[in-house]
Design a binder for these strands. Sequence first.
DNA 1: AAGTCAGGTGATCATTTGTTCACCGTTGGA
DNA 2: TCCAACGGTGAACAAATGATCACCTGACTT
Lengths: 316, 316
Amino acid sequence: MDTEQRKLLYKLAVAYYEDGLTQKQIGKRFGVSRIKVSRLLRQARQEKIVNIHITPVDDANIDLERVLCQKYGLDEVIAVPVKNGQAVDFYHELGVAAADTLQRSLQNKEVIAITWGRTLKAVVNNLPAMTKPEIRVVQALGGINSPDVEINGSELARKLAQIVGARPILLSSPGLVASREIRDALIKDPQISRVIDLAARADIALVGVGALNLESLARRYNIISRDDFERLKARDVIGDIGLRYFNSQGEQVDDELHDRTIGLDLNQLRKVKRVIGVTGGPDKVESIRAALKGKLINVLITDDNTGKALLENSTA
Amino acid sequence: MDTEQRKLLYKLAVAYYEDGLTQKQIGKRFGVSRIKVSRLLRQARQEKIVNIHITPVDDANIDLERVLCQKYGLDEVIAVPVKNGQAVDFYHELGVAAADTLQRSLQNKEVIAITWGRTLKAVVNNLPAMTKPEIRVVQALGGINSPDVEINGSELARKLAQIVGARPILLSSPGLVASREIRDALIKDPQISRVIDLAARADIALVGVGALNLESLARRYNIISRDDFERLKARDVIGDIGLRYFNSQGEQVDDELHDRTIGLDLNQLRKVKRVIGVTGGPDKVESIRAALKGKLINVLITDDNTGKALLENSTA
DNA sequence: AAGTCAGGTGATCATTTGTTCACCGTTGGA
DNA sequence: TCCAACGGTGAACAAATGATCACCTGACTT
């Protein structure tokens, strides 16, 4: 390119980026039409006369997060650094990161749906107190019988609401019942159906991701029976979100369990604009991958080891 | 600042500047309001997380030009490099630079006013041919008797118009007459007054700057008499633009010469949005400085030596 | 010599961005 | 305990910017 031209681009760039003039002002000053200034400035960027450099923060996982974001089409990924695999720290770290992200997402009048699990408990416990009375916290899955009452959906929703200063909206029913008939009966109750409808319209959903294996709480706490477990396995189920089971493509699997579950289903969840999935661990990699493939989650909060594993291709 | 906060700023900056997302999209993705994205991006710039660097062009005068621009509140300054003080090259170089600037300023239907002089001749001679029939070139000062006919305003206006492919509008009168009465009579002629009126409404004025000294063409060609010269000197006149004389503050000086001159006066000139002054040389420094102080010129095209001299403070 | 195609132009319109304002919650002090 | 000042917030508005379109010009082809 012409030296004169380069010089002009330089001058325009200085006027725009350093002196902060508007394109119109620059056009007037240099006797060029406003639109031409716009084009010349673009050219200056293309010609690398203007360089925009972003100082990287010293966090090794930034790249990992970005690549994951792109690979799975996510809105945001946070991969917290976990040196050793210590369990206590692990949940805490995930909880802190998720709490931060959740807090940032809160304005004043959202509807937040929440499921259950150890990770979500950590999220709730790391959230600072707020006063947001117009926010509603909705329990997205019925109650769970577990030794640790604090991971129960009702308890989590209640506590989250309390911390946020919001109104809790709870599901007064179990998450899983013995038969389809019972489920149907419960669902007819407006007290229940209304809550689920509200959860389906949530602005934000805070969910964990379960794996279908012997370590999973659902199995360890006998929430699903051994028969259920085996049957799901046979149907290539790989994990769940809120007891809604999916296969390796993140598709909802048609099983009678589905008809005994009371809570948000996966198709409803997919419609929520911001689904924050907080989860990690070696045994969960494949179920997380499936959930991501199925676009069940928009924001993934996990640890770096899990993140790295997700970058590699599925072994299945 | 918080590391988490820095990380967020980094992510937003990458999304905005590298991935080219809009602030609205980023807000949606990160669960933050659009307006907040705008504020955070500004913060990222303040915190130097985002650095905008402009590659300097290898032209030593860029800084000089910029400083001059600021010091005198000009729109633009071009200081062409002149190693040796060779006269021929000097006018040619100034002409090339001015022609480039003028050309850039031309759209399609401007009115260009032009005065006279050696420098302007060089400008016109370095302009490439164009076809802009809607442009009008107006002679801003009546004719001058000089040995070199090509520096005469009529000739310059005619030639400029021809090269641009535009319509010339000439002043059929001398630039300086013997008495106020003659001037008044000529001015009454609509043929003449209309031209001056048009010049006063010009979009662009192309002018030289004269010094009031013995080297000046006005004196050498005896355009102004020895008496005129001495009288002006006594009135602290320091230079002229188009035979309109001004003092060291660039203010028009009240002298009878003024009433014998036919052409644009300084107050009219000042109203033209884009006055391109093409001029330079050691003997002209102080008169250029005065013209700049008086805001008679918006765009200065000169040589680097003159530019440097203008940076220093007046000796007067 | 006429046609046509590419490149560049400004006008117009739509989008994006920044600014201003009123509001709210918090904090620090009386 | 109350009040006032403050910082932060989004809504509404204004400004700036980018995208699209139709047009023109100049160069090359037929």
